[in-house]
Design a binder for these strands. Structure first.
Length: 228
DNA sequence: AGCCAGGACTGAG
DNA sequence: CTCAGTCATGGC
C-alpha cells in the first residue's frame, strides 16, 4: 500500500496512520456520536431509506408518525401501503420512498423475519440489498453496518468532500475504491466504522458545505493535526 | 428567499 | 459509460 500524501503539508504518513489519526482527531473533537439513533433494527432500515438525500430531522417526524400509528413493523408497513405517503411526507420524495419501503419489506419477507435476513453472510446480504430497487451502495452499507452490525466503511458525499480536501483521494474514485482504500488500511471494527462515518458527517455538516479548505477553516486544523 | 439535506434511478448522447 | 434531470419536504 503506497503512502498517502496530504497536499497541504509536506508530511507523509502511511495510510493506516493517517486514517486513524483523522478518526481519533474527530473522536476527540466531537466525541462519540452514538449512531444509529433508531431504537430497533427495523427502525434503522426504515430510516436508511427515508434519509436518502434528506435532513434527518425530517425523517424523525416520519418515523414518529409510523410509531404512533403502530405500523413500524414489516407487516404493518406492508398492510398500510395506502397510508404511507401521508405518514412519511415530511421526509420528502414520499412517493418514491413509499415504493422503496414496500420493496424492502417484501425482500425481508422472503427470508421470513428481519433477524434472519440480517443474519445472512455479509456478501449475500449486500447483494440482496443491492437487488432491491431504491437501495444503492450507501443505503445498503448503512443497513449492513448499523442494523446487521457488520464492519463496513460507508462512503457518502461528506466523506468524498472531506477526504479530497485532505488530499487522501482525488475525488473521482468510485464508491468501492474509496471503501476498500479505507478498509484495507484500518482495523475492520464495527464500532470504529460506526463512529467514523457519523463523525465525518458531523464534521461535514458543520464545516464542509462546499467551503474550500483555507486558513481558519476548522478543516484545515484537522489537516494540520493529522500531519503532525 | 433560496439552497440543500446522512441518494438512487432513468434516459440521453 | 458519464451525466443532467427527477423526485419533494422542511430547516436555516
Amino acid at each position: 500500500m503506497k503512502p498517502v500524501e496530504c497536499q497541504r503539508e509536506s508530511g507523509i504518513l502511511s495510510p493506516e496512520t493517517l486514517l486513524l489519526k483523522i478518526y481519533y482527531t474527530l473522536y476527540d473533537t466531537f466525541g462519540p456520536q452514538h449512531w444509529w439513533p433508531g431504537e430497533s433494527k427495523l427502525e434503522v432500515v426504515v430510516g436508511a431509506i427515508l434519509t436518502q438525500n434528506t435532513n434527518w430531522k425530517n425523517v424523525e417526524k416520519a418515523i414518529n408518525n409510523l410509531k404512533e400509528r403502530g405500523i413500524l413493523s414489516v407487516d404493518g408497513i406492508l398492510e398500510s401501503e395506502g397510508l404511507l405517503p401521508e405518514l412519511i411526507k415530511s421526509a420528502g420524495y414520499y412517493r418514491v420512498k413509499t415504493e422503496r419501503l414496500i420493496n424492502v419489506m417484501k425482500k425481508i419477507k422472503e427470508y421470513k423475519t428481519l433477524d434472519i435476513f440480517l443474519g445472512l453472510p455479509v456478501e449475500s446480504l449486500r447483494s440482496e440489498l443491492l437487488s432491491i430497487k431504491g437501495v444503492g451502495e450507501e443505503t445498503a452499507d448503512s443497513i449492513i453496518l448499523y442494523a446487521a452490525g457488520y464492519p463496513v466503511f460507508i462512503v457518502d458525499a461528506y466523506t468524498r468532500r472531506i477526504f479530497s480536501r485532505l488530499g487522501i483521494i482525488r475525488g473521482n474514485e468510485d464508491y468501492g475504491e474509496i471503501q476498500s482504500m479505507v478498509m484495507n488500511n484500518t482495523p475492520n471494527d464495527t464500532y470504529l466504522y460506526n463512529e467514523f462515518h457519523a463523525l465525518l458527517v458531523e464534521l461535514g455538516k458543520r464545516y464542509c458545505r462546499k467551503i474550500p479548505i483555507h486558513r481558519g477553516c476548522p478543516l484545515s486544523i484537522l489537516c494540520k493535526e493529522v500531519n503532525e
